[in-house]
Design a protein around this nucleic acid. Structure first.
Lengths: 334, 334
DNA sequence: ACCGAGTGTCGAAGCGCTTCGACTGAGGCG
DNA sequence: CGCCTCAGTCGAAGCGCTTCGACACTCGGT
């Protein structure tokens, strides 16, 4: 397993064929007789041949690598990010591609570098903001890209995301069905709204629209992520809105604190107040009581992003926007 | 920015020099006159040249890419993982390397593939178990590797980690100094111990050793990650050990629940019971009260791992094991 | 004036792969 | 029976870069 690596010409010699024949066996781009194919594949196995990635990339002008650009910022819930990342890697491997990890702090330069050096064939960007500075670059890059999240102007881009507006609405509708008349949304920390993060705002819009539509009353508040601030916010809310009986929480890091604060103030869930969360299933399940929730389908978003990117790499046309429909799972908190 | 990419020969023509001269300017491997260097660099800038990664890798037998192998398992705290990952990427970029993301579910085959195809020059593995099946492969691979975490037999490998035994001991010593005589460790979920995860066991050993050394009494318990189980465990503990006044929590996902349970049973922190956590700072700070804690120096571990790998890539000798010393930050919980 | 030792630059030979065009037989057709 | 087609294979030309050896100067020492 050490020493110089096995090359295609050694395989060719071992199998008694030309180098190009080995290549065609491996790529399937030309017809090869069953007999030759078998001999070649045997040699590949016996010698433990792995094609050299650099040579392949150079000759074929395809690196078989895609870039995944991860954010590194406050207020993005990291476990969800990680789910995206692993689903992107897993999906990419199914298309025989690898994933190069870039961090957003390299900014546009990093993307340009990776693309221009042909290190990667395409890009998947996560946590795109409404007015993301990288978007103009993406439009002019020769390499195809897919965004997870929608910028304000998504024309000409390929974007995938959960339909957060629908998710916010779904929570309200669920509470309305259960007979609640006065509801509140505890959202992301205010810095996230200020930054112009699409999913936070869209959830709030969907919440507000559904409140209006169902004739409920409702407020939407940002929500910080430490216990004392959450506790204070809840106290204020309970005080200001004595009729409040339904809560939508869209903040993975705060759900635990919200439940703790309600417990602290003697409110029973769901007896006194019903809670719906928008968060990963494991957080909802691990809470007490287990929470009714709309989950972020991270696995599917990642998978779709890769699928779309692969289609673009094949030169096929893809839709600009792909919105995944949220699903609500009823547990014990409503 | 689209169309065919700029090549080194276009740069050479533009600058009026040979291709090899451009290469030497860029790599610095031979002396070049200041004048020529300037002309070449100007051309590089004007044309927007980025060397083709595949060609470079092929010719130089160095991809300038390292692999980062992430686990995908229960009981590993994801935010910490993410901190490792980003610090590895950031550190690698400082050495002009990129990072290829591999997931542990591809197992040894994935590592072999990436290494044999010269996709990567070296490997960083995270969350290594005591009896990790990938370790034999690493030993025979021509490519250098660095492990984050220690397997049972680390001879001939390069490993980096926080000194968890020392971290466990440090927590006990701190509680002892504060006058506590009876302490408990709430650790990882039992599945993590069963799996043979080094850091969990080592913390427990360090805890036990320090308990013995300081003459305290103490128990170590695994700790699941949902509120009800934590609450039950705490109830049992308080019941069985009325004298208990110090708690060490080594489980990021459970610290919030532990505090919630103590609040539930009317125990004040730190009045009735002192709590020390081993967890990232943001979790400790966001708790109520903010927790005295030993942080996992994820950033430094990642940085050291990359530094060691780069040394090995240069052919230099490096120590087998690198243990980072823990530091305890006093906050309001002890 | 001449040699030796740099110093700066060039040309060409690969690195290991893909892909194009060409070649060889075998088989189907008139 | 000759011709065309097509499946199967081969050889060679790159892909864009690094690196080695060679070459042309300059310059200080004699």
């Amino acid at each position: 397993m050490s020493g110089r690596a096995v090359t295609i010409s050694e395989v060719a010699r071992h199998a008694g064929v030309a180098v190009s024949t080995v290549s065609y066996v491996l790529s399937g781009k030309r017809a090869i007789s069953a007999d030759t194919r078998r001999r070649v594949l045997d040699s590949v196995r016996v010698l433990g041949y792995h094609p050299n990635a650099g040579a392949r990339a150079l000759a074929s002008r395809r690196a078989n690598v895609i870039a995944l650009v991860l954010p590194l910022r406050a207020g993005v819930h990291v476990p969800v990010l990680m789910q995206f990342a692993t689903s992107v890697v897993t999906a990419a491997r199914r298309y025989d591609h690898d994933v190069l990890l870039l961090t957003a702090d390299e900014g546009s330069d990093g993307l340009r570098r990776a693309a221009a050096s042909a290190l990667v064939d395409g890009l998947v960007l996560m946590d795109v903001e409404l007015h993301d500075s990288r978007v103009p670059l993406l439009r002019e890059l020769a390499e195809p890209s897919v965004l997870i999240g929608f910028p304000a102007d998504s024309a000409g881009l390929t974007c995938v995301d959960l339909d957060f507006a629908r998710a916010g609405a779904l929570c309200v509708e669920h509470l309305a069905e259960r007979g609640h008349r006065e509801v509140a949304l505890l959202g992301a920390p205010s810095v996230v709204y200020d930054r112009g993060t699409g999913f936070a705002r869209r959830t709030r819009e969907g919440f507000a629209a559904a409140v209006a539509e169902t004739g409920l009353t409702g407020v939407a508040l940002p929500c910080e992520e430490n216990f004392d601030q959450v506790s204070t916010a809840i106290a204020g809310l309970l005080d200001a809105r004595p009729g409040l009986s339904g809560l939508v929480v869209h903040n993975e890091a705060a759900v635990g604190h919200v439940l703790g604060a309600l417990r602290q103030y003697g409110r029973r869930v769901p007896g006194d107040i019903a809670v719906v969360a928008i968060c990963p299933d494991d957080i909802a399940e691990r809470a007490s009581p287990p929470l009714t929730s709309v989950l972020i389908p991270a696995e599917e978003v990642g998978r779709q992003a890769v699928r779309l990117l692969m289609e673009k790499l094949e030169g096929r046309a893809v839709p600009d926007g792909t919105l995944l429909q949220p699903r609500l799972t009823v547990r014990d908190s409503t």
